[in-house]
């Protein structure tokens, strides 16, 4: 009974609160910034994510028909390819996509169990798979398709921003980065606190015109994307690639 009250108190005493309140403004917001200017679509971020997380706190991540017809499994990160323009003015753009850790995540309030939550400490949006009932409602509530149910465990899964790496004091500091960030051969994946104006990510967003996906829904994704740039002459300055990012784009 005493313990029960203690917990009651503890669970709500602010300094112990893990979960961010709806609309609460956070001091830190960790995020990825994806540089489309150098991403070559190698999928290193896809499988490095898979291998880290399947044996990690969010795992295991099941694979159905691994050696059969229609192999399909749980991944937190996908690399897609888009094509702009017509031959010969064709641009091929590789486009990695994982959870954007929205600052106003529509996926969280809809969750009936509280399994979906946003961490107050660093803004990471997580699923507590010990609570999740697999109703999939949060996935419906994510405009970006960033959530995948694990068909084996029947709980919702998503990018954890490698929360079990980045805060792991047992790891050497230089390793406290998401698996995909460490893997990326082109360093197209920057990781850091977008609330800290001097962080690498904040600077990149400022200086390189980082933008958000589907701004129309005001989910204010924490992850941002850096647009293509073009160097017209050797030794010259690189400028936004006009064929795929017309004027005005950069001001977003």
């Amino acid at each position: 009974m005493i313990q029960w009250l203690k917990n009651l108190f503890a669970a709500h005493s602010d300094h112990e609160r893990i979960r961010a309140r709806p609309g609460e403004t956070l001091a830190r917001q960790l995020a990825l910034v994806i540089d489309l200017n150098v991403c070559v679509g190698c999928h290193a971020c896809v499988t490095s994510c898979k291998q880290w997380n399947t044996s990690g706190s969010a795992g295991p991540l099941a694979d159905e028909n691994p050696y059969g017809i229609g192999p399909t499994g749980t991944f937190f990160n996908r690399v897609q390819t888009f094509e702009a323009g017509t031959y010969p003015q064709t641009e091929t753009i590789h486009f990695p996509k994982s959870c954007l850790h929205c600052e106003d995540p529509p996926c969280v309030p809809v969750c009936p169990t509280g399994a979906s939550y946003k961490r107050r400490e660093d803004g990471i949006v997580l699923v507590d798979h010990d609570k999740c009932i697999g109703c999939k409602y949060c996935a419906w509530a994510c405009p970006y398709g960033a959530r995948e149910i694990d068909e084996e465990r029947q709980v919702m899964t998503k990018c954890t921003l490698c929360v079990d790496r980045i805060h792991d004091q047992a790891l050497p500091p230089e390793d406290r980065k998401p698996a995909c960030v460490k893997a990326c051969p082109t360093s197209a994946r920057l990781f850091g606190d977008i609330k800290d104006p001097d962080s690498e990510v904040s600077r990149a967003i400022r200086e390189r015109g980082g933008y958000a996906l589907m701004p129309e829904w005001e989910t204010s994704p924490a992850n941002k994307y850096l647009p293509r740039r073009q160097t017209p002459v050797a030794g010259g300055l690189s400028t936004p690639n006009r064929t795929i990012t017309p004027e005005g784009r950069m001001e977003r």
Partner: peptide, 30 residues
């Protein structure tokens, strides 16, 4: 090569790809 090409791009080097097909590295060519 991936490490080198991306560094080169970031420095603002000019990258031309001559290829009947545009995939992978060629995708990020200027």
């Amino acid at each position: 090569l991936k490490i080198a090409i991306s560094r080169f791009r970031r420095k603002g080097g000019r990258f031309i790809s001559i290829n009947p097909v545009r995939t992978g590295y060629s995708a990020i060519a200027d």
